[in-house]
Simulated assay, not measured.
Amino acid sequence: MGTVSNNLEVIDGFKSPGELNRFERWLQREVDAGCAVEVDVKNYYAGENFKERWFYFKEIDSVWRLVCPDGPFHGYWGAV
């Protein structure tokens, strides 16, 4: 099993589609390594019309949400 960094940081808006793509690739590696598990969304950050995914990080016992950009909203990554 891999190790997730204990210092996950909030992303309050992705600067470009490329930044979001790089972030999603990192997130998938965390899932593949067993550091994170995707879980069901319990309540939406910006409404049900936005693509949102939640991830539980076992090592730090914390759930984080990824809300994908949908202009003019630039997306969000942060603890639930």
Rank of each mutant, 00 (worst) to 15 (best):
G18R: 14
K58G: 04
N43Q: 10
Q28G: 03
Y56E: 01
W77E: 08
G47I: 01
V10P: 05
V10C: 09
A79F: 09
P72A: 05
P69N: 05
V10K: 15
P72D: 08
Y76V: 07
V39F: 05
A79T: 08
G71L: 15
G78R: 03
A79I: 11
N49R: 13
K51N: 05
V63D: 02
N7Q: 15
F23N: 04
F23S: 04
G13P: 03
S5V: 12
G13R: 07
F55D: 00
E48R: 12
F14H: 02
S5Q: 12
V80C: 13
V41E: 04
S16G: 07
Y45T: 06
G2I: 13
G34P: 03
W26D: 11
G18L: 14
V63E: 06
Y56C: 00
Y56I: 00
E59Q: 15
G71V: 14
S16Y: 02
G34T: 02
F73I: 04
V63S: 06
G47Q: 02
L66R: 05
F14W: 01
F23T: 01
N21H: 11
Y76W: 15
G34I: 00
K58A: 09
A33R: 11
E24V: 09
N21R: 14
E59N: 13
C35L: 03
P69H: 04
F50E: 03
E30F: 06
P17K: 10
Q28M: 10
G34N: 01
E24G: 02
F14M: 08
G78D: 07
Q28C: 04
F73D: 07
E24H: 03
S16N: 04
L66C: 03
E24Q: 13
R29Y: 10
E38V: 00
N7M: 14
N49T: 05
E30K: 10
C35D: 02
